[in-house]
Simulated scan of single mutants.
Amino acid sequence: MNFQELQPKVTAIVATTPLSRDEKLQAICQLLNENVAHYNWVGFYFANHESKTLHLGPYVGAPTDHTVIPFGKGICGQVAESNSNFVVPDVAAQDNYIACSFTVKSEIVVPLFVNGINIGQIDIDSHVLDPFTVEDERFLEFVNTEIAKLF
């Protein structure tokens, strides 16, 4: 399924009334994980600006020990500070990378803004080297724009 086909499905999940916010986020993780071949771990981290930490939210994929990440640490922590997308074609080439699994080869993190404030991010790991394109970035920005409606 391509990104254009996935967009209305994301919108439909966000609009589903009987689901809680976390259930909607979990459903979006599941949708992306099942329908984009190079998305092997899909999850959300949410910011606590007082403690300057990110906290793991709903996700699909291998369990992770990284449930709390300090701002500035790893790819996710860097996005919490930069407020910019971060595409890592090869995690082995990154100095400030938190290894989750030896199977992870690349990562993309896109910040989630609500009223101009970076409240978190969507984080995607891939078992493939350099799979992420500008289309992935635009699609994940769309996903986060839809998710922002839940806050």
Rank of each mutant, 00 (worst) to 15 (best):
G116D: 11
G74N: 03
G74D: 06
I122E: 06
V134D: 13
T53V: 07
L32I: 14
G74V: 09
K52S: 08
G116K: 12
C29M: 07
Y97P: 04
V88L: 09
S126P: 03
I28Q: 04
I119N: 02
D95L: 11
V110N: 01
N118Y: 12
G72L: 05
T133I: 02
C100V: 12
G43W: 03
I124H: 03
F71V: 13
N40C: 10
N40A: 08
F71L: 14
V109E: 05
S126E: 01
D125G: 00
G120T: 11
F102C: 00
N96T: 03
Y59P: 05
A93N: 11
E50G: 09
I119E: 00
H55W: 10
G120P: 08
H55C: 08
A99G: 09
S82C: 11
C100T: 10
E107S: 07
G74F: 03
E50I: 15
G120N: 10
G74L: 01
A62D: 14
C29K: 04
A62H: 06
N118H: 15
Q94V: 15
V87T: 14
D95G: 15
V68M: 14
S101E: 03
V134S: 13
I119T: 03
V109I: 11
P70A: 15
V36L: 10
V128Y: 02
C100S: 07
F44I: 05
N83D: 15
P111G: 02
G116N: 13
G116T: 12
K52A: 09
G77Y: 00
F44M: 06
S82A: 13
E107W: 00
H66P: 02
N33D: 15
F113H: 10
V91N: 06
P58C: 09
